[in-house]
């Protein structure tokens, strides 16, 4: 008889062929999507791809780069933003 965890509809399922010859249905782990830049839409670097339960165990400095708008914008997007801010202040 299959376990109760297999009855879930939110998790993905996978059939496995056992060495005895019979098949078994297993439940897949959920995976998180990659963090993406808010301006360009490209995946960010130095941000781990993990679900919230594991992210809480990681230290804050290892979750995002030590930079303004780190974890939100890419490095190129921040440079453009800072240049426009500096030029606006002069005027």
């Amino acid at each position: 008889m299959a376990g109760k965890s297999v009855n879930s509809k939110t998790k993905g399922k996978q059939t496995i062929r056992l060495p005895g010859g019979r098949s078994k249905v297993t439940v897949k782990q959920k995976r998180s999507s990659r963090v993406v830049c808010a301006v360009t839409g490209k995946p960010l670097q130095a941000v781990p791809q993990a679900r919230s339960a594991k992210l809480q165990t990681i230290s804050k400095s290892k979750r995002r780069p030590e930079r303004p708008y780190g974890g939100v914008l890419s490095s190129k997007a921040t440079r453009k933003l800072l240049i426009t801010k500096a030029r606006e202040e002069e005027q």
Binding site: E66, R67, P68, S75, T78, R79, L82, I83, K85, A86
Partner: peptide, 11 residues
Amino acid sequence: CVKIAGRDAGK
């Protein structure tokens, strides 16, 4: 100057 890159960016 204003620094653009690094952890001192914006300063």
